[in-house]
Nucleic acid binder design. Structure first.
Lengths: 132, 132
DNA sequence: CTGGATCCGCACTGATACTG
DNA sequence: CAGTATCAGTGCGGATCCAG
């Protein structure tokens, strides 16, 4: 049964929930950055840590585990001394990264518009407050 | 200066940060759902509440404010009794929603693969734990 | 009907220290 | 080098009550 008469009733089960599924996997704070870096080829932990500015080693580890769990990353351990671990994006991850492009483009083309909208909104807020 | 030699050094300033910008706007738990519903035309608050299953009125209000602030939603108040408020997606939001399609498609086509990968990973974890 | 205000639990995240 | 363990802060999100 449609939740609202006259409205498309396949909003939630359709594209939206699928989008959220993707977001839950890749929408984490560092997910895309890591996939982006590892898309070029295997990268070591320390290099990854340097390549993603601002990430802590803890979050790097956690995010890597999640991505590996979802089959987006291949983790290769070389039993050397000192130990060496390489992470590489799978084809699945590369597809995902490519699917990300449209959204990036949108953001890139419209971030000024968003900025302007926010400023305008905040200004209206402020002037409206002058009437208590 | 490149963070990692041999690696593309425009990972963060490029597509990735733009993607994160978009995510910060629309990656909230309910953002896309609301944009999806309001893309078809103006929708009232109560109808929106029914059309997005699981959302609380509080989060609906908060998310609507954010979207309106970013110029993604138009809020129209009819000074009737009882009050009536309609929300409609702007063209900007509709573009954003369209840019979302690629990611939704990816999720739709690959969610089984993700599921399988997770099961396999968890099984390996479990059997590895048997050796303490 | 459409919110605002408040309280509160929880999950994400970072800092730090420690280990194989 | 590549993690793990623990502690603590922060903000999101829900529940509830109140208001125009």
């Amino acid at each position: 049964m449609p939740a609202v008469s006259g409205l498309p009733d396949d909003v939630e089960p359709g594209a939206c929930s699928a989008f959220r599924t993707a977001l839950d996997r890749v929408g984490s704070k560092w997910g895309i950055a890591i996939i982006a870096v590892t898309s070029g080829g295997p990268v070591r932990f320390a290099d990854l840590h340097r390549a993603v500015p601002g990430i802590s080693r803890r979050m790097l580890t956690l995010t890597l585990r999640t991505l590996e769990r979802d089959g987006l990353l291949i983790r290769t351990v070389y039993p050397t001394v000192p130990p060496q671990v390489e992470y590489a994006a799978t084809d699945l991850a590369k597809d995902l990264f490519a699917s990300t492009r449209a959204l990036s483009d949108w953001a890139e083309h419209n971030h000024e518009r968003l900025e302007a909208a926010r400023l305008a909104y905040d200004n209206d807020e402020e002037s409206a407050r002058q009437y208590h």
